[in-house]
């Protein structure tokens, strides 16, 4: 495999790890435990700041999206429609989008922090 494929694989693996660990964490711990997961994963992943943000954003975002959709589809959008109305959003999928964005933002920021604070020894060589 060439190095760019490895990079992509590593990137996707980090996203997947974050999604899975966040899911596990949030079943047991407070909602912001996903941020801790992102921070820790970014600490050990060989990713630069910008890419770490993307990993965190996608990792938590994907998990929140999947979890939200699992609830919402089975619920036929009853609650998401009310929540959208509550936040003055025009429809339920915008509510889901806002949810996913907020989760992603928290995950991305936390991963960025991790990538920036990690020891030099595991920073990607430039």
């Amino acid at each position: 495999m060439d190095s760019s494929t490895i990079k992509i694989m590593r990137f996707l693996f980090s996203v997947l790890i974050i999604a899975l660990l966040s899911a596990g964490a949030e079943f047991l711990l407070p909602w912001w435990s996903c941020a801790v997961v992102c921070f820790l994963v970014a600490l050990f992943a060989r990713q630069s700041g910008g890419r770490a943000f993307l990993i965190g954003f996608l990792g938590v975002g994907i998990f929140w999206l999947v979890a939200a959709l699992l609830h919402d589809v089975a619920n036929e959008h009853i609650l998401s429609t009310r929540m959208a109305a509550l936040f003055k959003l025009p429809n339920y999928w915008l509510f889901i989008l806002v949810t996913v964005f907020i989760g992603g933002l928290v995950g991305g920021m936390a991963a960025w922090v991790g990538a920036t604070l990690k020891p030099n020894s595991i920073k990607p060589s430039r």
Binding site: E26, P30, W64, A67, H71, N75, E76, L79, T99, G103
Partner: peptide
């Protein structure tokens, strides 16, 4: 907002399957 929107424990946990 974070606590409310987080989909495992937040408000969406009250989205009862039809």
């Amino acid at each position: 907002i974070g606590r409310l929107l987080e989909p495992v424990n937040g408000c969406l946990a009250n989205a009862e399957p039809v």
